[in-house]
């Protein structure tokens, strides 16, 4: 099972990449833990999560190939 993760906005400053692929992640909590281990600064940052192009809050189960988008808030105008 493949999880494609897309980082938006200033989150790419932290990750250094706009995209990452991880395998066999059971749920979004585990995904966040894994990402926070890979990129500790991500844990201090607010972002919204969309799973398969739908925003989610709280823990969601990942089944099958999944696309995850991490979006930070933008304030500029």
């Amino acid at each position: 099972m493949q999880v494609q993760i897309m980082f938006f906005g200033q989150l790419t400053d932290i990750t250094g990449t706009p995209e990452l692929i991880l395998y066999d992640i059971p749920d979004t909590d585990t995904l966040q833990e894994t990402l926070h281990q890979l990129y500790p600064a991500l844990a201090q940052t607010k972002y919204a999560i969309a799973m398969n192009k739908k925003t989610i809050q709280g823990k969601s189960i990942l089944s099958g190939d999944t696309t995850i988008a991490l979006l930070p808030p933008f304030s500029g105008g």
Partner: peptide, 19 residues
Amino acid sequence: RDLFPLPPADNEVLNCEEA
């Protein structure tokens, strides 16, 4: 607020002037 329930900390996001 369905997208961003709470604002980020003030040092998290740069405004146009800074960024």
